[in-house]
């Protein structure tokens, strides 16, 4: 039973790693600030799923769910504030490109 659970966990973890790669690649390669948040969101989703799978295979779904609820709330706040900051940047620079943010250059 334990072995089967471990195999289930590794099976899910394989796909979660793929989503993590997609999110990380999005953050690293793009210059658009909106896409950076989208990449961050993908990373969070991958972690959320991994916590749920870990809770399922160890039989502690209640604890996993409570952690995920906390994670989702933090995620929403981060996204809302980041979207506000991006809007402010856009109104200052008329652009969403990170390469145009040079006003703090020393």
């Amino acid at each position: 039973m334990m072995g089967a659970n471990w195999q289930l966990f590794t099976g899910f973890a394989f796909f979660v790693i793929m989503v993590l790669i997609a999110g990380l690649y999005c953050i690293l390669v793009t210059r658009n600030l909106m896409r950076v948040i989208i990449g961050l969101e993908l990373l969070t989703k991958a972690v959320t799923l991994l916590i749920i799978v870990a809770g399922y295979v160890t039989g502690q779904t209640a604890l996993a769910q409570s952690l995920v609820i906390t994670l989702i709330i933090i995620e929403v706040v981060v996204i809302a504030v980041a979207a506000g900051v991006i809007l402010s940047i856009y109104r200052h620079n008329e652009s969403l490109a990170a390469s145009n943010l040079t006003s703090l250059k020393g």
Binding site: M34, I52, G55, Y56, A64, I69, I72, V76, I79, I86
Partner: peptide, 29 residues
């Protein structure tokens, strides 16, 4: 995976609210 409460949160907040925040931000640019 028997986590209905987290699933409901994910559906309402991540699929609904965050998408609405993203679409509003995009529409303002």
């Amino acid at each position: 995976l028997k986590s209905p409460l987290a699933a409901v949160f994910e559906l309402s907040v991540c699929t609904g609210l965050i998408t609405a925040v993203f679409v509003s931000t995009i529409s303002l640019t």
